[in-house]
Design a protein around this nucleic acid. Structure first.
Lengths: 247, 247
DNA sequence: CGATGACTTGACTTCGCTCAAAGACAGTGG
DNA sequence: CCACTGTCTTTGAGCGAAGTCAAGTCATCG
């Protein structure tokens, strides 16, 4: 019996529920402030006609920073990282993207970040020309994309708050909370860490050594437990929430 | 003879060229990768009919984090800061916004940041309901807003790169380069610093003391010169660009 | 089983933060 | 017009936390 990897939700192939987009809307909804699915079945139907499905193995580059941009991408399944290599030789990971996320926003015709898969990924490749044409016919779909982009913008702002903290353990806790939301959304109780420690370090603006020390510290304090390299269990929810919210 | 403040472009009142939105588009344009005006005269015309013009003095709160959101704002003239006060007592400035910028994006019906004027400001207050109704009639205008939001998203990503640097002088140089673009766009040769040192510190994720030391260091190295509190002149463009680009 | 790469651990350095105090500036009222 | 005062800014001394360098451990794959 082969164990399902923690980042898979167990669906077999492209279900009719894709491509999907998830975000917290501008306006107050019945769901409170939880993320909701933005697209109706009819809207997904229209999108999937424009899209090319791409199945990529782990560690595949989707596109490189500086290359000409003609597509945006919606993730059906899997995890990717979006990063930039800086002049100093450092790598800064701008974001991790998961199922129902949107990426591939360009500047003046070129991608600004490099995107690489972390796990095997199913992508919906949507040509930008076709999408803008669809927007003219279907302003409602365009509004959902706008909503999603604003959602991503808030997430990037959250990232700056993470990096702004001075304590390594606090930064790590905030990332773990993000990953916890992802794992919870897929019905897992433990937190899946599909990315490497150095990816985590590059996301948090720390050295890999500092990530390691912060992990030990959280563990020593009885807040979390690391099971192998890719799984974390929260032991003390109270203190975990406290250290992650301390900002 | 009263000297014009450095952040004013000298226009007297709401000209017919407002509200305006400036951004680098997705696609390659004739202008290369410089920001361009997104809205046509006709589009501005339609927007101004929805908007209420508000003239605010300096140090005025436009809205507070957590308050119900029903408007988005376009700046006609002036500078504002968007910030959050964190549980630790720290204040994190997420962005400075200038003329032709858009702000006021909400989450689940509430603003996430507090926005406060730094200089006197002319705002175009656009009700969200009216704007979405306009989007349905005019998908082209919606696309320009989408473009602007993506532009803001890139700027926030740039901010995370700034904060990710470990050297205070480098962070300060990157902010100065941002402000330099603003000043250049208004035809000034020197860089205007309308915000306080502690605003700068909160934007850069440093203490005010560290900002002061970094300023003195850049000055001592002959890279810039501070004239009073609100103006900076770049002396050595070469090394200024180098330190700002070192990332 | 050996090799390669990722991760962890330890010792030392560096840089920004904190605390404390002096110095410059702007708005106020005499 | 000028002195006063509160605020903002700068400067200095000491501390703490993360970075760097180096070495050791673990896991995975051929």
């Amino acid at each position: 019996m082969s164990k399902q990897p923690a980042w898979s939700n167990g669906t077999d192939a492209a279900s009719p529920r894709e491509p999907a987009l998830v975000a917290i809307p501008f306006l107050k909804e019945a769901s409170g402030s939880d993320p909701v699915e933005l697209l109706s079945d009819a809207q997904r139907e229209k999108l999937v006609r424009l899209a090319t499905v791409r199945e990529l193995p782990a560690r595949t580059v989707v596109y490189r920073a500086g290359s000409p941009a003609d597509s945006v991408f919606i993730i059906g399944e899997g995890v990717v990282k979006s990063y930039r290599d800086l002049a100093s030789g450092r790598r800064r990971i701008a974001a991790f993207f998961f199922a129902r996320d949107l990426f591939g926003l360009a500047e003046a015709g070129y991608y600004v970040n490099t995107v690489q898969t972390i796990t095997p990924v199913r992508l919906y490749d949507i040509k930008f020309d076709a999408l803008t044409a669809l927007f003219k016919r279907e302003p409602d779909i365009e509004l959902q994309f706008l909503c999603k982009v604003v959602h991503v913008l808030r997430e990037v702002q959250h990232h700056t708050i993470i990096i702004g903290r001075r304590d390594a353990a606090g930064r790590l806790a905030m990332l773990l909370r993000l990953l916890q939301k992802q794992s919870l959304a897929q019905g897992h109780r433990d937190i899946a860490l599909p990315m490497s420690r150095s990816d985590i370090a590059n996301y948090l603006g720390l050295s890999p050594e500092a990530v390691s020390r912060a992990s030990r510290r959280l563990e020593r304090q009885g807040i979390v437990e690391f099971h192998g390299r890719g799984e974390v269990r929260v032991i003390d929810r109270q203190r975990f929430a406290a250290i992650a919210a301390a900002a």
